[in-house]
Amino acid sequence: MMKLFSEKSIKKALTVIAFSAIAALLLIVVFIILEGLPFIFKVGISDFLFSSEWEPQMGRFGIFPMIIGSLVVTLGSMIVGIPLALSGAIFLSEFVPRWAMRIIKPTIELLAGIPSVVYGFIGVMVLAPLIRDYLGGPGLSILAASIILGIMILPTILSISIDSLKAVPQSYREGAFALGATHWQTIHMAVLPAAKSGIIAGIILGLGRAIGETMAVIMVTGNAVILPKSPLYSVRTLTANIALEMGYATGMHRQSLFATGVILLIIIMVLNYTATIAIRRRVGKK
C-alpha cells in the first residue's frame, strides 16, 4: 500500500514538473507583457511603432528606427548566410563521403558554440576597419552586422538543412538518375524540392536567431538611432536598444524597453510558429 502511494505521488510530481517549460514560458510572457503593455497603451501603439523620435528623457518613445534596424540587419544576414549555408549543406550532404561528414558536421556544430560576444569582437577588430578603409563610412554598420550575423547563423541553417537533405529517401535520387540526370540535375530537380520545408524551417530558425541576437549586434552596428540610407550606415536594433539602456533606465523609460521586448517577443513567436508548421509539414509528408 505504501509502495502504491509513492508510485502515485511520483507520477503526480512528474506531471507537475512536466509543466515547468509551459510555466516558464507563461511566466516570461506575462511578466514582459505586464511591464510593457500598459506603456504601449499610454503612448499609443502607432506613436510607439511608427515615430522616429527616440528621446526617452524628453518623453519621446518612437522605435521605428530600431524596427527598421532589426529588419535590415536581419535581411542582410540572410543575404550573407543563406547562400553559404545552403551551398555548404548541399555539398556536404551530397558530395562528401560519410566519414568526412562525421568530422565536418561536428566541427561546424562546435563552432556554433563560439559565444556571440566573440563574434562581435571580431567584427569590431577585423571587419569594421576593413569596411571603413575600403568602402568608407564609420565601419560599424549594417554591412558589418550583416556579415557577422550571417556567419553566426550559418551553423543553425547548415545543420538543419543537412539533416533534411539526408532525410530525402534514396529512391528519389535513384528515380532521377534512372532518367539519365546528372548528379546536379538530380539534386536540383528531385532532392531540393523534397527537402524544401525542412530547409525553410532551418532558415526561419536562423532568422529568429538573427533578430534575437544582441551582444554581437551591439558591438558592430554602431547603435545610431537613425533611418539608414545605405548599408554603410550605422543602425540600432530592437535588441540593442534594450540592452544598451537597460542598465540605467527607470520609470517610463524602463517600461518602454519592456514594451520593445513585447514587440520582439511577438515577432519571434510568429517566426517560431511558422517554423513549427514547416517542420510538422515535413514530418507529416514522410
Binding site: 514560458l25 516570461i28 533578430i211 534575437g212 541576437e213 544582441t214 535588441t239 534594450i242 520582439l264 519571434i268
Partner: peptide, 13 residues
C-alpha cells in the same frame, strides 16, 4: 517556444 526566445528577453524577464 522557450527555445526560440532571444536571450535578451530572458535577461529582461
Amino acid at each position: 517556444c522557450l527555445a526560440g526566445i532571444p536571450s535578451i528577453i530572458f535577461g529582461l524577464f
